[in-house]
């Protein structure tokens, strides 16, 4: 009787690797033509099979269903997962030591580009405007523009970058978000993971991860080119966050909230990356 080992051992012939010339059985030598057709069969066969599989994979991805609407929407489900995974990777290289390049004042554009008015159409009554800061406890701070202007002012002249692909050097002035947090003793709120900002009419809204919000170049801006913000640039107060694309730089801030969950985000609901960091 054969031992188990012998039974399990495949016959020698089956172990032959067709690519390895040493394993060729010497008994039945193949002619050159046979070798050619054998290798062609294997390689072209693999090529067609793998190529078809790749094409099938692409069709699957391209036709994959849209994600279920949560705080994000509008992207193919697998691509949204990929964006979120990629966010985890790029968050690792985020550092407060990495600063956006700044420029001398004369490089700033006189005509600051204006792209969209969603949530900040028409005039705003600046005298009536207040910034509402909603703490997680439910407590609401109401802060006027004059109170914000009394805080230390920071200017930044940097290259503003739009998700569309254009960029423009522009000059903004306002309160550093981290100074604002310190002054209003909101440090406990910064232990939460996200900041949410919305326009007074709640038509435009963004969610910002806390490290980006607390980046030393993030401003609550009330000036452009050293003059009060005009309506089209988000009067009376807007977010200037150089570590994000323009889509996150909310104009006409009405309220600020803090949360451990991602706050709703206008463009993330339309298929864009939630993080959108630079």
């Amino acid at each position: 009787m054969k031992s188990l080992n012998q039974l399990l051992k495949p016959p020698r012939q089956m172990m032959k690797n067709p690519f390895n010339k040493k394993n060729r059985a010497p008994k039945k030598p193949l002619t050159v033509d046979q070798k050619i057709s054998r290798r062609n069969f294997i390689s072209f066969g693999s090529f067609v099979v793998l190529g078809s599989a790749a094409f099938g994979g692409w069709k699957w991805l391209y036709n994959s269903p849209e994600e279920a609407k949560t705080v994000t929407a509008g992207a193919r489900a697998p691509l949204r997962r990929a964006l979120n995974q990629t966010e985890l990777a790029v968050r690792r290289i985020f550092s407060n030591n990495n600063l956006v390049k700044t420029y001398p004042k004369d490089r700033a554009a006189k005509n600051v580009r204006h792209n969209s008015d969603i949530g900040s159409e028409g005039k705003v009554d600046i005298a009536a405007w207040v910034l509402q800061v909603k703490k997680q406890s439910g407590e609401v701070l109401k802060i006027s523009l004059d109170e914000l202007k009394a805080l230390p002012k920071t200017d930044i002249i940097y290259d503003f970058k739009c998700v569309e692909g254009w960029d423009q050097i522009s000059h903004w002035g306002g309160v550093k978000f981290s100074d604002f947090i310190n002054h209003y003793k909101l440090d406990d709120q910064t232990r939460l993971q996200y900041v949410g900002m919305e326009t007074p009419d709640q038509k435009y809204y963004v969610g910002i991860d806390m490290p980006s919000a607390m980046h030393p170049q993030t401003l609550l801006a009330y000036e452009v080119n050293e003059k009060p913000l005009p309506a089209k640039h988000g009067a009376p107060l807007r977010l200037i966050i150089p570590v994000k694309y323009g889509i996150k730089n909310l104009k006409r801030i009405g309220s600020i909230t803090f949360s451990d969950n991602r706050p709703r985000d206008y463009w993330a609901e339309l298929g864009y990356d939630y993080y959108s960091g630079l």
Binding site: S95, V100, K101, D159, G277
Partner: peptide, 20 residues
């Protein structure tokens, strides 16, 4: 892609605008 985090690459490529 990450002109702030990879500011040295952006500098190497002659700035954001030229890199694009």
């Amino acid at each position: 892609y990450k002109p702030v985090q990879f500011y040295y690459l952006t500098w190497l490529c002659g700035g954001y605008h030229f890199a694009r």
